[in-house]
Simulated assay, not measured.
Amino acid sequence: MNVDDVRLSFDSGSLLVLNVVLAAIMLGIALDTSVDDFRRALRAPKAMAVGIAAQFLALPAVTWLLTLLLDPAPSIALGMILVACCPPGNISNVLTHRAGGDVALSVSMTAVSNVFAIVLMPLNFAFWGSRSDDTRALLRSVELDGLGMVVQIALIIGLPFVLGIWAAQKAPGFASRAQPWVKNGSLLALLAFIVAGLAGNFADFLDYIGLVLLAVFLHDAIALGLGYLCGWASGLPEYSRRAVSFEVGIRNAGLGLGLVMTFFDGLGGMGIVAGWWGIWDIVAGLLLATVWSRRTATRKVTA
């Protein structure tokens, strides 16, 4: 059977759990976000602009070119594009800290990027997903509900984000105590969900993972490298480049997986790409952060 004909099975209860976990991840980000983070972003407009442009302009475009080069099955190509259009997850902040990068920039960029993603993610996906004949035909075959996707993204990202920032402003003590539990608990719950989901569809995963391994490995490496390259090309110091690298390279693939299950009926290649990316980008990010942690990052641009 072609991977484009495979449908991963997740019941409605599992989808509800996944959406709650994704909302909790956003709540964890918001509880650690303040109005000062947005003010900080305004005080460093160059670094913020580089990171946002790399995420929402460069990465989807480069991903589309990569799908042309690898020529995978259309559902795999769509999965790669969907992941590239996802916002960063809060693991990027942890990895930036471990790598000795600019954590303040990372946190503020994660916050701003997730706000932008409510509108830019569905627009980006619709645009780049329709650039190739095969993926455009696949999009038409599933009759994508664009408005429904925007509403779901707003509920998963926007609502918990607003509630989290409100709680952080009104009850900072409670927010600071709750934030580590919410952030770490939701991340562990997401990893457990992805592992359980892949295990529940293990036969399909084993049958087609060979088609996905190379694509995800290259895609993730390119995403991390693209963030660093954009920081270097724009003259950011090493300290900031590391933050931008993780903001671009670490995507909230769990959100992508939820959208695949909701709007694409668990379309095989898309689901396997999103599920495997959610595991692999943490592994790759930890390896890179460990390497960088052995060398202190310069905080000023050197000639």
Rank of each mutant, 00 (worst) to 15 (best):
N2V: 15
D4C: 12
L18K: 11
V20L: 11
I29E: 11
L31K: 06
V35R: 15
D36I: 00
V50R: 02
F56G: 10
V62M: 13
W64M: 13
M80H: 05
V83Q: 02
N90Y: 11
L95E: 05
T96Y: 00
A111C: 08
V119T: 08
P122G: 02
L123I: 09
L123V: 09
L123S: 09
S130L: 06
S132Y: 04
D134W: 03
L139C: 07
S141G: 06
D145C: 02
I153M: 04
L155T: 07
I156Q: 06
L163K: 14
A175R: 07
N184I: 10
N184Q: 15
G185E: 04
F202I: 14
Y208M: 09
V212Y: 01
L213M: 09
L213I: 14
L214Y: 09
V216Q: 01
F217I: 12
F217H: 11
D220G: 12
A221D: 11
A243S: 08
L255S: 03
L257Y: 08
G258Y: 05
L259A: 03
T262Q: 11
T262S: 09
F263T: 03
F263Y: 05
G268Q: 00
G271Q: 03
I279W: 08
D281P: 13
L288R: 12
A289D: 06
T290H: 01
V291Q: 05
K300W: 15
